[in-house]
Design a protein around this nucleic acid. Structure first.
Lengths: 205, 205, 205, 205
DNA sequence: GATGAATGAGGGTTCATTCAT
DNA sequence: GATGAATGAACCCTCATTCAT
């Protein structure tokens, strides 16, 4: 199950467009109703396409959420690339980048979908694998940044580094939950306290 | 839907015991299979009670998860009380208490259920309301702690305080996600970086 | 798939009655529409029971046809028992029994169902296995009869015996097809030629 | 449904070639997967032609199996012709021809398709009609053979003759079933017993 | 003539919920 | 109070068929 569909399409551009249509529609439905709550009927209506036709592009509903995850992974990687390419010192880059990071983490629509995927991971091994793979890549990227020349903590032990990265990720990831639990929370309020904590995590203790 | 059942029970004590049985069983099932993955049949078997009988105590499956949340809220409040009652200075108390907090946040079984509930909140207003209420109470408790005599930051602005609390909560809450995304992560690794960050959040910047 | 359902039923007698209801209804539908042509909806309507309820007694549609086969096997064994218990010489017994055998083989309703099951066996290994098992038992029974004291051919080689039995079975089994291909065919017409052929197969060549 | 398509084709020869392509491909698929098991997609791939195009030659999937039957009928007639043209006495010819007949009847691939068609006949009147028509022709041919000069039973009553023919056909037809029910069965084993039975049916009792 | 994208009814199955006992 | 037999709507998915190109 959940394998990428192998069917040959005469017009690959059209096929890719249809896949995109479906992914966007499905992500929207999952956001609003959850993975289990959203039916193929609703997804197909949102995608303006018959339910049956979706199966010409995805082998199953499960394959759809997996594709959404994979697409999100690619997005995330491009964000990290920005940090890597930036010339300034890391603490400045990241505290300033925090602004954008917080905004992203506090996007309600996005957050609901992410939570949905995380919850699904708890019982769907394939989803769990994909998310973990994505997270491993992200940690690797971050580790490379923090051990680079521009980093103030390039000499800490591996274990401490792992701890710093995970707390960092927990902090940003946790914003997903804050948005759900405290919808009135403002970005600048968060930044007031997050930047100092971030600095602590990027400098020697 | 999901209203508290209004049925009169001849023996209120027995009724309460039955409700407890059901909640424990359901929480267990939800933990293992997720809200959607656990069926009433399994819950009823775990609760050693017929499926039909559960409906004498809860109007629907949804009402059950709501009751679980309500029960969890009560538990959480008692934890906070510990901090309030403790005589030492707050930074010490909390950095030492972090140990227990991390352990709690990284409990995988518990985490799956929490994620489930948070995901459900994104689309179920009643669940969202309950969780938000719970979170508001928690923030209030924390605010009271941080503005108490023993606090080093009792004079910061309300806004900054709100920021600190939310980042604090995000950090711990985010550990839920870390466990799902990086199952091999160890508690002591986290603590290595979390304690300094925690200190930063509890002291003037 | 297709395993016997393991659910415990509070009232085994009722459960057995329901299973019977379902088997009778399903056999009827399969006869009229074929295994693939008959839907669970139609079966459930014929059985005067909701579609969902059928799944409390059978794990799948496939399990139903398997149960029908098993039930038929038991019926068939009881017929063979008659021959075994009969005191007269075998040729007489069987040529006289042919009457009943032909009638049974030419029952149109029954025949359609048998054909359906045989066709299904060509692509469903479990069905094939059950039918082959049934046939093996039948051949064993027949072999025992033909090597018994009362048999005129008790001393032929195993291979010849196997040949005789299989031609015998082919002849009767083939009547199933005759009924479909030539519905006007009468039983007594068949018997006119079948009895001599039968005698040939039961006596030394 | 299932009427012969009325569409005019610009190039009748090409059209006939395409029809042939489709019939061969479909027969192959039906053999391997059964009528219901084989999809139009698979048939179209086997026929190296788009699914939609098939509908330019056949009105429906049903029309295809009907055309296959019609084609098979024509094949069968040519086999009978062999007997009619042969100079030797009938008993010799047919007992020797039995060899080939048994081989043909025991071809597993072919058998599956035949069974499929017979099962379909039980519920599809058009299929039933075609098969019956085919069978009637075959019986006529056989009757002509058995009442010819070379026959030893040219003087039996019509009814007895009908009985003999039908038992004969049942015996060969029944081999189809034997192959499904007892796949290890060998041709020579069958012939050991079939030839004497055959002789009985071709000679005065 | 030929394609394959697109449809949508219907397939088997699950499961929260009801109710007679 | 307690059971579990029974319901039926909704689930995901398949496939014969159509039609714009």
């Amino acid at each position: 199950m959940a394998e990428k569909i192998t069917k040959r399409h005469a017009d690959p551009a059209l096929a890719e467009a249809r896949r995109g249509q479906i992914l966007i529609a499905a992500a929207d439905c999952f956001r609003r109703k959850g993975y289990h709550g959203a039916g193929m009927a609703e997804i197909s209506k949102t995608a303006e396409m018959s339910a049956g036709h979706i199966y010409n592009y995805f082998a199953s509903k499960e394959a759809i959420i997996e594709a959404i995850i994979e697409r999100d992974m690619e997005e995330m990687f491009s964000i990290f690339q920005q940090f890597e390419d930036h010339p300034d010192d890391l603490v400045s880059v990241m505290t300033e980048g925090a602004d954008e990071g917080v905004e992203h983490s506090m996007d309600k629509e996005q957050g609901a979908l992410q939570l949905e995927m995380l919850a699904e991971a708890a019982r769907n091994p394939k989803v769990a694998f994909l998310l973990q793979q994505s997270d491993t890549h992200a940690r690797d990227k971050m580790r490379r940044l923090l051990t680079g020349e521009r980093s103030l903590i390039k000499d800490v032990t591996d274990k401490e580094l792992d701890g710093r990265i995970n707390v960092l990720f927990a902090m940003f990831g946790g914003l997903l939950l804050r948005t759900t639990l405290y919808p009135e929370l403002q970005k600048d309020t968060i930044l007031l306290a997050l930047k100092p904590a971030l600095r602590t995590l990027l400098m020697p203790f």
